[in-house]
Structure formats: C-alpha cells, structure tokens
Design a protein around this nucleic acid. Structure first.
Lengths: 371, 371
DNA sequence: TTGTAGGCGTTATCAT
DNA sequence: ATGATAACGCCTACAA
C-alpha cells in the first residue's frame, strides 16, 4: 500500500494560558511516496533496508559532510520510500535543545503585534528556530505564568514585551540564571536591567504628535496608559516637552491615564463633555482608544475634527477605516520583530556582548482627517 | 542558591507554515523554590535524594493510585525543592502519544474563528490535550502543507475547516490510514466522506436572510464565495428557496461569486453602480465583504440603507461598529469549537461509532440598521 | 505499595 | 566514510 506525501516547510505555533495565547513557528519535513506500515519507520529500519548503520543514516539525513554523497542519495530515497518521519522528541531529548524561542506579548490581536510576530517568524525560520508565543493580556500575573511555561517548555531564548502593570522582573531571573538569552522589545524595562532592548523613540513620537495638534489647538489633552511603562512615560515626556516648546504650562486636568481600551475611549468622551473648558485637541496613546473616543463623541453629536482634533498611536488598519480617518504615529512592527529576533540569535550564537544593546527604530506621523 | 518558581497552568501554542499560522494549547507544571543546579533535575535525582526508585517517583508525580499518599507528598515536595521540571520529550517519546490535537482553519484572524478556538481550548484543556493550529489562508495547497505538518507533528487527532478551494481530500487520507480521528467543522465535505461534522443550517440561514430582505425589497442580489464549498452552496440554496417562496425568479445577473474580502465588497459596489437596474437588497455571505461594500457605496454617495439594504453573515464585532450597523446571521463559534472537540475526543476514547455523525448547531438573524 | 529492567528514536563519542 | 555503543529522561510490564 502506498501513499502520497506532501512537502511541509516552515511553521508557527501558538499557545495559551487560559486566556493567554501563545504562538510557535518552525519547520518540518519533506515528502514522497509512502509504503504504509503499522509501525513508524525509524532510522534503524532505513539502515536495515540499506545494509547501513543507524548512525550513517542519521548523518546522511542531516547532510553531514563526512557522508558520501551517493550514500546520502540512497538514504534519502529510501527514507521517502518508506515514509520515514523524523521523531523530534527523540532528537530533542538527545540534543538537549528545543530550537524553540519564547515570545511573551501583552496581546496578540493587534495588527501591530501580528506584524512583529511575522517579522520574528521570518528570521526565526531562516535560523532554524521555532517560536512559542504567549500573551499576558496585560496582566503581570499572566506574564509570570507565561514565563514559567516558557521555562518549563525549555525555550532556548526569550523575547518579551512587558505587560501593562509588570513592575517586578523577578520572573525573568530564572532565565538569566540558566543563561537563557533574553531580549525585550517595545515595552521594555530600564537599561540597567541589563538586557538587550528594541524600541522606538517614544519621546520624540509623543512630541511630534503633540506638536502637530498644537499647530491648530492650544488646549491639548493627553490620554495614556500606565505611566510606569516606558512607552507611555516617554510619550508623556514628549507631550510635556512639546507643551513647553509652545510656551504652555501642563495642567493635571488634561492628563488622563486609563487602560486605553475602546471603552476607555468612550469614558474619555464622558469626561470631556462634562468639562467647562473642553480640550481642542487630544493626543491618545493608542488607536483603539482614540477610535472609541471618536465614535462616542460622534454618537453624542460632537463629531471630529469639528469639535476637537485627535491623534492616535500605532497606525492600526482600523485607523483608515473609521470616519474620520485617524491621524496617528506609525512604526514598523515587522522590522521590530526582525530586529529583536536577530539580536536574540546573535546572543545564542555567542556573537558579541550585545546583551545590553538598545536598538532604536524609526517612526513617523501619519496625518489624516481626524486632526 | 535558590530561586522562586511560578505556578503555570494551562496554555495554547500557535504555529505557521510561512504565512500559515498554527496554535497550540496545553498545560504545564507547578512551582516552588528551587536550588539551582547546572544540570536539569530528573526523576532519578529525586529518587536518589529520597532513597526511592525512579519508578515510584514517576508514579507519585502523576498521582498514580498505587502510591502511598505520604510518599506522594514527599516526592512532590522534593521535586519542587530541587526545581524538577518534567521532560515532555522523554515522556512523549516513551508513550508514543503527543496529546496534541491538530486544527486546520481557513483563517485565524476572524473573531468567529477566535471564538471557535476558544471553545476548543476549554474542552481540550479539560481533557488534557494541547492544540496545534494552522491556517490554510484559504489555499488548498497550504491546507495540504498544514496537514502534512500535522501528520509529522504526530497529532493524536485532527479538526479541519476546509479552505476556499479545497476539492480533493487526498491529503487527509493519511490520517484515516493511521487511524487518526478526524472531525470537520463549519466548512465540511459531503457526508459520504464518512467523517464527523459540526455545522450550522446554512440553507435555513440563507433563506432567513433573503426573506428578511424580500420583506422590503423585491430585487435582491446574492454575493457569495466558492459555490463548491458547502457553506456557500447551502446559503445560495436558501436564497433561491426564499426567492421561490416570494414568487420571484432567479436571475444570473443577481448572483456574484468572489473571495468575500473587503476589496471584493468594494468591487461589488463598482458592479452594481454600473447596473441599469440596481438591486434594492443584497445578501452578502460574509460581514467583511458586506462592510467593504457598504463603505465603498457610502464613499460614492450611495449610503445604506437608503440606496439598498444589506444583510451579512457571521456577526463579526465590526458589524456593530460600522455606520450603519450591519444586519447579519449570528452563530455560536465557541459552541461549535466545543462541540467539534468533544466529538473528536469521543472518538479518541473509542466511545461509540460517532465517526460519521453530523451535528447541526443553531443560528439567528440579527437585525440592525443596514436593512 | 514499591522496585527492576528494558526500550522509545536519535545523536555524539570513539573507534575502525 | 562508516559502525558500535551508550546515553538522553521517562514509562510500564512484570516481579517482589
């Protein structure tokens, strides 16, 4: 009995801790025509069929230089013919490496994060690694759980973008202790933590966004997330700086810190509608929240940009879909993913003391109808 | 040197074949305080430390009934203390089972599919299985590759929702041959393929959608996907039936088959604007396409529902976000996922000849401003 | 209730 | 260029 067998190439995997989702890339094997057998074919079976040793077969299959090319050809042919599939469990067990890199992100379901992961995928595949991805859902506790899962899954390296409220980095100490390389991206800790980081210049981005609003408005509100998180702290600093440059003073009343959800955006609408002196511009540190705000204002008869001007952050595709289209800060998720993964792999290969480097990627303001 | 260790619970994994993405759920281990050691702790180390045999430790750790509870306590304590982490590779190798179920879906990034996967996750976790999820991106070829990956990953069972253009089911024969249980959901093959199926009544849903439009319009267009795929074929049958019931004759001109993307929706706008006799109602077999259509019409000065009335399909969250909100057919993704996974597990446990059952879940029409 | 022993499939080391 | 052999860590008859 024979069977046709397809060519599988590379792949990802995902994975969740209850609500937490994880992803994993990698590659797999080849194909051919298969003689069906009850039991799985092993390298011993191939060796027996060919009058070779299992060692030779093993080496031939992984293109070891010491094996005669004719032998390699024979082995590979026979392997396909017999429907051999390599047993990754046995291999990992023996090699004590998983070729899996862990990725922990706040959320998977944003297009920015998809882009980051896509970038990581490409680089990981090229280097022969798989990814195991978890989302912390912005909860420090889930992040801790995810880190434990990663550790138990024996990832060879770890990439992290911190959750909303992660303060203590104790859950990552294990990795250090076991010499598992660690790279942070986007939401990163202070440089003194001593790990590689890939970020954008959030300060500058915040300054540009605010400046853009200040060109037409004088009362600009800033809506942001947890100010302990670098990205929000820096954007806020940029906001302050732009105010200063325009000769304006910061007013507590014009700073709002929430979870940046769509609902939070609607709540911002509530808030400013009740204000005696409504802001003329809003720099909102996340597109979704900005959209929630704009929609809610529209529903209450205060359409943008007539009532106020808005700038978001991230350039989510939906920013081009809403009415009015949203002005926002764009940055290259894919590049960020590639860069972070490249940094990690460099560490894995022991290529240089890049362990504490910080890479800063570029961003830009996209002006649309909302401002 | 000691180390704090977190409690990890259940989890998912994802995974892609180039553009294909895969996900995988599962659970992991426990925690405590760890004495750091260079080498990983094994059950042998625990056994030695406790003066027991590795077999006893192995059994104690998995709560084997034959082990004295006092012993279990000791073993578990020691395991935590020593920072033991179970080696899944060794275990899988030995048991010849992966406890992984494969899932192949057309796309991951729809909220419907997220719901399906969430439902699957819960059931899988409860039953001690992990999920490995791949997306075919509507391409039959990618589906084939994903199936091969699943096979090579040695999944214990497979769940499939067919790609847009999958015709031949040869790539799934392998699973049959190896007695790997197979369950289809949503996009399914004919019953004669002889596998379990979980679906909704697409015929009835299509009929309801069309009827709803016919209550106010007489010229109703149907925009749908590949009519070879059960879901579209059935919805179309429902459309025809509703027309018949209303005493109308079907006109070729009012049937459009495309890839149901947002762009395709915009193309539908092009098409009908050029028509001498513009349809008054459109039943579009997918919310995204419907939204693309509505937006495009709005941009050209033909707003809904003034110009025409629209019904979509799936109740994507964005359906409540657009202007006007979209009337659509809703069905329970989560329930579908749970049901499909339950059916699969039943097969794995050899519980009855449910291998060829078809389960039909309910749906309902949600009326909103677009119609 | 616990222990013994062999094997799951692969790969690295050391020969030849 | 190829072979023999011994782990890798866990599980499970079978025995005690």
């Amino acid at each position: 009995m024979t069977d046709d067998f397809e060519i599988a190439t590379d792949c990802i995997k995902v994975f969740s801790i209850k609500n937490t989702i994880i992803i994993w890339w990698g590659f797999t094997s080849f194909g051919g025509t298969v003689h069906y057998m009850e039991k799985d074919v092993t390298i011993y079976d191939i060796a027996a069929a060919l009058g070779l040793s299992a060692a030779t077969v093993s080496r031939a299959l992984k293109d070891h230089p010491a094996i005669h090319s004719a032998t390699k050809g024979l082995v590979r042919l026979k392997a396909e013919e017999m429907g051999y599939r390599r047993n990754a469990f046995a291999s990992n067990l023996r090699r004590k490496r998983t070729n899996i890199l862990g990725v922990i992100v706040p959320r998977l379901n944003s297009s920015f994060m998809s882009a980051v992961l896509a970038g990581m995928e490409r680089v990981a595949n090229d280097a022969g690694y798989n990814l195991l991805i978890a989302q912390s859902l912005e909860s420090s506790q889930k992040e801790i759980a995810a880190a434990a899962t990663m550790f138990n899954s024996r990832v060879d390296g770890l990439l992290v973008s911190l959750a909303y409220d992660t303060d203590d980095l104790g859950h990552l100490e294990k990795f250090r202790r076991y010499n598992i390389p660690l790279v942070f991206f986007d939401r990163v800790p202070e440089p003194q933590f001593g790990a590689a980081r890939v970020i954008i210049d959030n300060f500058e981005a915040g300054r540009e966004a605010t400046r853009h609003l200040l060109a037409t408005c004088s009362r600009v509100m800033h809506v942001t997330g947890n100010l302990k998180r670098n990205v929000y702290a820096e954007r806020f600093r940029g906001y302050l700086c732009a105010l200063g440059e325009a000769g304006l003073v910061f007013s507590e009343e014009l700073l709002l810190s929430n979870d940046l959800s769509v609902q939070a955006g609607a709540a911002v609408a509530d808030r400013i509608i009740g204000m005696a002196d409504m802001p003329e511009g809003l720099f909102i540190a996340n597109d979704l929240c900005a959209i929630g705000f704009i929609q809610s204002m529209k529903e209450r008869g205060h359409p943008m940009p007539a009532t106020a001007r808005v700038v978001g952050f991230n350039d989510d595709p939906i920013a081009g879909f809403v009415e009015p289209q949203l002005t926002t800060i764009q940055y290259q998720g894919e590049l960020m993913g590639e860069t972070a993964l490249t940094a990690l792999i460099r560490q894995l290969n022991g290529q240089g003391g890049a362990e504490t480097d910080t890479v800063v990627l570029s961003h830009r303001l996209i002006v649309r109808a909302s401002s």
